[in-house]
């Protein structure tokens, strides 16, 4: 099911496969803090063509916790890539040195291309504005831990839905489950891309695009918050006027359902102020805590399979 396979998008995984991953994650959580030897002798290559701290550290920690080892780079400026080496050649080299490649790249489709070139499995740790499948796995797992089932949930995704890869992958992930409704909350300039909307229609996911959190906050069981980068908007001055609509406040939470959970892929800026942290709705630190166990489970499943 997982052994030897590439993970390029969350779309490629079935609900059943995600279930296997989540069960494996449950066991990894039990071993938290222990050093296991499941991946002894295995080498993970971390090819971070774009800076990342969180994702890279959590992949590396996951590998080390399982007894594996890590090679790689996080500053392409200091490698042969800066000298003009193609992605194809870099991947061929890492393919020869390692048992698995984790790639992050600002170019869209880079992970799929890397997966076509490499014989060893490739995991996409983010390609441009497109996909971030392991983040989506963490997000889905957090919902599952909090609700048991996705059935009938009403879910809101807030922020930059056009360029945000975490938001995009989360939306693809939600389309796999029988949720009741998906609210896509964003400024008009940052609405979901055409291909994402087409996919939601194709999967028959019930969804609405809205512009204000205020209008839907009382309907939500899950609120997925993402950051809006000012430079993404054609007119940053205009944005100052509307930014309040994309910022979660204690006032919003007065309207919220009792069981509402708030998620965020982190790092955050002011869309999710610190005052929310102490509310019962804040689940983003719990969510961040699943980063390593999910990736431990995924690395284990890909490198040695379901058995053991």
């Amino acid at each position: 099911m997982f052994k030897g396979r590439d993970i390029v998008t969350i779309i490629d995984l079935t609900k059943e496969e995600l279930e296997v991953l989540f069960e494996e994650t449950d066991s990894m959580l039990k071993y938290k803090g222990l050093n296991l030897r499941l991946l002894e002798g295995k080498i993970m290559a971390a090819a971070f063509f774009e800076p990342s701290t969180r994702t890279r550290f959590s992949f590396e920690t996951a590998m080390l916790r399982l007894g594996g080892r890590v090679i790689g780079f996080s500053e392409p400026s200091r490698t042969s890539i800066a000298k003009g080496e193609t992605l194809a050649d870099t991947i061929r080299m890492l393919n020869a040195y390692s048992d698995l490649i984790v790639i992050r790249h600002s170019i869209e489709g880079a992970a799929k291309f890397a997966a076509e070139i490499a014989d060893v499995p490739v995991i996409n740790a983010g390609d441009g504005t497109r996909h971030h499948p392991t983040q989506a796995m963490i997000d889905l797992y957090t919902i599952k831990r909090n609700f048991e089932s996705f059935d009938g949930l009403e879910v809101g995704v807030l922020g930059d839905l056009k360029y945000g890869r975490a938001a995009t992958s989360f939306i693809y992930g939600m389309s796999k489950y029988p949720i009741k409704h998906l609210y896509l909350i964003s400024p008009p300039q940052l609405k979901c891309r055409n291909e994402v909307i087409e996919y939601l229609k194709f999967t028959g996911t019930s969804f609405t695009e809205v512009e204000k959190l205020d209008d839907v906050i009382s309907e939500l069981d899950v609120l997925y918050v993402t950051r809006i980068q000012r430079e993404r908007l054609p007119d940053p001055a205009e944005y100052e006027k509307i930014r309040g609509s994309y910022r979660v406040t204690l006032n919003h939470l007065k309207e919220a359902r009792d069981n509402l959970i708030i998620l965020h892929p982190l790092p955050r800026t002011d869309e999710l102020p610190n005052e929310i942290d102490s509310t019962k709705h804040a689940k983003y630190f719990e969510q961040a805590g699943y980063g390593v166990p999910i990736r431990m489970a995924l690395l284990k499943l890909i490198l040695v399979g379901e058995e053991i």
Partner: peptide, 21 residues
């Protein structure tokens, strides 16, 4: 048409690929 697509990167050995939707 996407300039940030891997198929538009100079020197990478790949062809564009499309699927009819």
């Amino acid at each position: 048409i996407n300039p940030r697509c891997i198929t538009n990167q100079p020197r990478e050995p790949l062809k564009s690929k499309f699927r009819l939707v």
